[in-house]
Design a protein around this nucleic acid. Structure first.
Lengths: 195, 195
DNA sequence: CTAGTGTGTTACCGGTCAGTAACATGAAAC
DNA sequence: GTTTCATGTTACTGACCGGTAACACACTAG
């Protein structure tokens, strides 16, 4: 019963962009599509965003923030226990991979769609992926793995691979088993400390 | 000194499409771009291809054939020696990953760019990825690994991950080390037969 | 009451896109 | 020499795209 309008247009536009860009791909979605989905129009769009390219960058930034928030949550849920954080993350993977609406990592997808090195989205993608890898690596180091960098590389690549695999072969692919794979990896890798 | 024209237009068009689609992305390349790069024109293009979508499927089919040919080569080079074939393949990975012009797997990229389930390219992509995974799995089985399916999944996903990683973070990413990772995996995984 | 601000609406610009029609050219086939 | 066939050329259609101009409307602040 509340006013349907309490959400300001900029947020509605960004939310619509997130949905459409992810579901259909960035190049396949027009500014008009986004404005219409946000229940506004192109003119209002351009009052809030300089260009489509900058909206794309903003879209990726918002997803990066969201993903980072998830990792912060894991840290709060298991403070000082990197192994528990890793295991909890692996749990999340399962639900994410088995979701049929999931089309892989939006940042990685954007990297595929946007090869131009000077596109404003590029810096966001690169920073996000490096940050994510470093976050995994830090957990592996703190978890006391004997070869933390190698384990982190492996986890990172397995996960990235699973998310593209989902788009290539769909539900029947090897990506569906990535949770078990990482779990096995965590269990079988030697550590200096035991906890 | 030979006639510059001995290559028939259909082949020139397909070759140009391979180059442009891979380098810039499918949606970013127009039919006109391809025709011009093939030193012909749009009209001749449409005399050889029904539509752009069907050319895309053909483009992916030709790359799938090419990749399959590489695996056939490995088999011929090391007949009856699946471990040697795997090791030789890992060798190829290194040169592929370190090539800065490399933009990952064209088939996987196409899967990202084309979410439409009824697009003619979809069937090509799915068949290719399943075939490739099965080919790796067969090698792992024949190599006598105790858990051939798990090793195959891991190799497959590590490789897929490395190829997307290359596009996201570029030359400094974890993907650069995928050769060593798979190599270590092959060495450290228990096998029933020793050769 | 009025000024200012954010929004909606319509129309437009220049450009690109996939795909087609009509006709000219060239070379080989007979 | 003429038919045939693949190719080149130009021009076009209808649709879409990113982005902008101009103006109308509603609401809020003073």
């Amino acid at each position: 019963m509340a006013a349907p309008d309490v959400v300001p247009p900029r947020e509605r536009i960004l939310a619509a962009a997130c949905e459409l860009f992810y579901a259909r791909g960035i190049r396949a979605v027009s500014v008009d599509d986004i404005a219409t989905a946000a229940q506004t129009n192109k003119m209002t769009f351009y009052r809030h965003f300089e260009s489509k390219d900058l909206l794309v960058a903003e879209y990726l930034r918002s997803l990066a923030r969201e993903a980072d928030g998830l990792w912060d949550e894991l840290e709060r849920a298991h403070p000082g226990d990197p192994m528990a954080q890793l295991r909890a993350w692996v749990g999340h993977i399962g639900t994410m991979i088995s979701d049929c609406k999931n089309r892989g990592c939006a940042l990685a997808n954007a990297a595929v769609e946007i090869p131009e090195k000077d596109h404003p989205a590029r810096a966001v993608i690169e920073a996000y992926k490096k940050h994510k890898h470093e976050r995994i690596a830090a957990l592996c180091r703190n978890a006391g793995f004997c070869e933390p960098e190698r384990i982190a590389d492996e986890i990172f690549l397995l996960f990235e691979g699973a998310r593209v695999d989902q788009q290539s072969v769909g539900a029947g692919g090897a990506g569906m088993r990535v949770g078990e794979l990482i779990c096995t990896l965590l269990k079988s890798s030697p550590r200096n400390t035991t906890n």
